[in-house]
């Protein structure tokens, strides 16, 4: 159980007859809830399909993943937008709250630590990233992240540069084209399918007839 720093104001609040809900950040919470609902729905659907005997087509999988990525993006933007408000919001129960009937809800709302499930996800993620928080300071972690970003940036740049070094279309190398620019001007490659279609030199049925009947 988490400790309850909000218990003192809660007692105060219960003494008031009317509670002012005006300051509850309903809009922010609802926005986050909406995004989360979409995301959990999409993830559950994907998980479901992956568990089936025959996998969905690759393009349908790709579509779903890109939808999930968009939803994740939207969630992080929303969270970012309301970060200040949500950070400064403290939850506490009012006196009229039916604590015995909704004990589960109450403990969930007042919980400050992550639930064990989420704890293990975070742990997994850290493990995968190879960051040991016990030995690294937060500066080190930041540096690590920055390094990572730099490597990504470099790889992207390198890829771009390499791509421009080669000619991916036509029949000539990039060097040949740079020496003689007229070469790459038009597409010389003509697939000659028509020449290689086999001809039927005899009637198959008549041969089958000889196989089965002799003549």
């Amino acid at each position: 159980m988490s400790d309850r720093p909000g218990s003192a104001p809660a007692i105060n609040a219960s003494s008031q007859e009317e509670f002012n809900f005006q300051h509850v950040p309903a809009q922010a919470l609802d926005a986050v809830r909406m995004r989360l609902a979409q995301l959990t729905h999409s993830l559950a659907k994907l998980k479901d399909e992956m568990a089936k005997a025959d996998l969905p087509q690759w393009y349908s999988l790709q579509m779903q993943v890109s939808v999930i990525l968009t939803q994740l993006q939207s969630l992080t933007t929303t969270l970012h937008h309301f970060e200040e408000l949500l950070d400064s919001t403290i939850v506490y129960p009012v006196g009229t709250f039916p604590t015995t009937a909704h004990e589960g809800l109450l403990t969930t709302l007042l919980r400050k630590k992550n639930i064990p499930e989420a704890e293990s996800w975070i742990h997994d993620a850290k493990e995968t990233a190879g960051i040991d928080l016990n030995t690294m300071s937060s500066d080190d972690v930041k540096k690590c992240l920055k390094d990572d970003e730099e490597v990504t940036k470099w790889a992207l740049g390198f890829l771009k540069q390499e791509h421009s070094n080669y000619a991916f279309r036509g029949l000539h190398t990039s060097q040949e084209i740079s020496e003689n620019p007229t070469l790459g001007a038009y597409d010389e490659y003509q697939p000659s399918v028509s020449n290689n279609i086999p001809k039927q030199p005899f009637d198959v049925d008549s041969i089958l007839k000889i196989i089965h009947q002799g003549a």
Binding site: N196, I197, P198, K199, Q200, P201, F202, V204, L208
Partner: peptide, 8 residues
């Protein structure tokens, strides 16, 4: 069934 010619 089908058939192809020698050259193919």
């Amino acid at each position: 069934t089908s058939a192809i010619d020698d050259d193919s």
